[in-house]
Design a binder for these strands. Structure first.
Lengths: 343, 343
DNA sequence: AAAATCAACGTTAGCGCTAACGTTGCGTCG
DNA sequence: CGACGCAACGTTAGCGCTAACGTTGATTTT
């Protein structure tokens, strides 16, 4: 091992016989170095096992290669899937990603963003479009490239890529109503926790209301594991006094599956006695003995698109402020065979 | 807003009337400043909305507040749970966590670790104990505080906290054999992908072999979603020629649940015709209509313990090199009621 | 052919902070 | 009461790198 401790660009420069500035340029791929010299420097850097000091680089250039990514939780299939989509693009572009989980707490998110700014982060990725107002203002003022992902609006902090959750809710609602269901219910998380959940519910409500069905029962469960939450919510729903819902929509497919399991356990015919529908079209749904009706959201593609746009944005390109990805209704076996005449 | 752009410790020093060194000491909580002066400086820092430049701090002190955490995948209940356990401890201690997913690729892990070293990382957390040898040597030579988590051995890079996967496999194997099962099968991921999976299998094999059952059928599935993988693996297993297995163990509870669903779909009586068992005791298992026999692993506690030890280690304390957390067999409804006489 | 242009390098100043030594003034102790 | 010790500060010198200007010699321009 010829590995000296802490080889710096100065050492490389000395070895090659040029100034450290030339080395710096060569290593960064900046122009101003002849191809021959660049090759020689790169070779020597390799030989000497040079490792750039990112800290020094960040300090001198007032910009780091860190990208902060904030997501509500890792206990979900949604965010890991989005992260997975972003991964390749960001790492190819040479960025290091610092991930934070906020547990749906805006204050925590804001504090963490400030911390990332202390690191001279090159960019930020935030989940959704609902954030602490001061944080919004701060980021806007600082002009930090910021991607809001998963949800969309007309006026993002910087740029956003996501789906229209309200429209997704409406789409599912229209389908369920067309199936003949008239006593809809929704199983979700505690109110205010997840804005996307509320939007889906609002969309469902809107389409049912338009069709003349005003009432929608909502059961909220505070359980991290989605399958569990769906099961618990469904049991609670079925135990309620009053007419039993004839269709239950869930915040996502995992929850819907939990609910479906409960119904099957109670020998409640699905979709005749009760319809079941989810959201997101998660991989789970592709092998279920009974595919669940759902609204597919392009999670991975969202990550890819978002990351690409963010990188382009950081390179100074002009990109669309807001990109709405399409969702698609995917009919399964858990809705539609309802006996309308009996209702 | 009185917020000036880029308030530095020099500015605070000027405002208070002391040198920047005193400000630095006060802000870092280092001794050498009178309580009154410290209070005054902290107040002024607050007023002026001072934000430390972490980059500069890292460069000057040759040590950053970054901790690199490498995990194979986010698509699992295991690693998010461990991460969740580490979170609070690390963030309270003032560290920022950079998470990387390796997809079970050691080369990728090694490259990423080098990158973290370029950031002067304060510490590292690696999943499991099997890593690229050069990386091991490098970390050892550099004496970077390194925690290996989830698996254990006598000779970790630095310190480790985990469970004994081989013993867990044996434990489950003994139980299954005691139940009377004699044709065991195991559904796992592709060989070599996940060392822990292989160890569990080896443990299962060992205990069955000791009891006189030499053969164990292994089905390997390459699917990210565990439920899906379990379902597919089970179907493949049941389609194989030869005697049908009378018990199927799965790498984890999600896979086991997928398998259970398939068996139920085929009207195969569980646990009579076929037993089902998983690993990890995931939350899912707490609400399943039929609890699955499993081996509980203390994931969250592992994260907590690991993080605490790592922090202690970074503070120079001497901590146990290797900590083995206990696992516990949790009997469910999916094993044991086998009719031994019929076998 | 003198001037302008330009690629290919070099020099100079820091980036904002901290480590490692000073320095000062006051109590204290033989 | 002078030497000593010590708490509470200050000074100096970078950490390793890059931005922003030089500088130089060769090529092009008119």
């Amino acid at each position: 091992m010829t590995r000296k401790i802490n080889v710096g660009i100065k050492d490389i420069g000395r070895a090659v016989g040029v100034s450290m500035m030339t080395v710096s340029r060569a290593l960064r791929g900046v122009e101003g170095v002849s191809p021959a010299m660049r090759a020689e420097i790169l070779r020597m850097a390799e030989v000497m096992d040079y490792r750039p000091n990112r800290t020094a680089r960040s300090l001198a250039s007032a910009r780091s290669s860190l990208i902060g990514i904030s997501i509500p939780t890792l206990f979900s299939d949604v965010f890991p899937e989005i992260l997975d989509g972003m991964r390749a693009t960001l790492s190819h572009a040479g960025f290091d990603t610092v991930i934070d989980t906020t547990d749906y707490d805006r204050t925590r998110e804001a504090a963490w963003v400030e911390r990332m700014l202390d690191w001279n982060a090159a960019g930020l990725v935030l989940s959704g479009i609902d954030h602490a107002p001061e944080m919004r203002d701060h980021l806007r003022a600082l002009q930090i490239p910021t991607l809001e992902i998963w949800d969309v609006c007309d006026d993002p902090i910087d740029i956003c890529v996501g789906v229209d959750h309200h429209a997704a809710g409406e789409m599912l609602g229209r389908h369920l109503h067309a199936c003949g269901y008239r006593r809809p219910a929704f199983v979700s998380v505690p109110e205010g926790r997840d804005r996307r959940a509320d939007k889906r519910l609002a969309g469902l409500r809107a389409s049912f209301a338009t069709a003349g069905v005003a009432e929608m029962v909502v059961e909220r469960v505070d359980r991290r594991a989605a399958f569990v939450a769906g099961a618990i919510g469904t049991e609670a729903l079925l135990k309620r006094p009053g007419p039993r819902p004839d269709v239950i929509a869930y915040l996502n497919d995992h929850m819907a599956f939990g609910g479906l399991s409960v119904c099957e356990g109670l020998a409640l015919p699905v979709p005749q006695a009760v319809g079941i529908a989810g959201f997101n079209g998660l991989e789970l749904n592709t092998v279920l003995p009974r595919p669940i009706t759902t609204v597919r959201t392009p999670l991975n593609a969202m990550g890819v698109t978002g990351a690409r746009n963010l990188v382009a944005r950081m390179n100074g390109a002009v990109v669309a402020r807001s990109i709405v990805l399409p969702t698609r209704l995917q009919e399964g076996d858990t809705t539609c065979a309802v006996d309308v005449s009996a209702a």
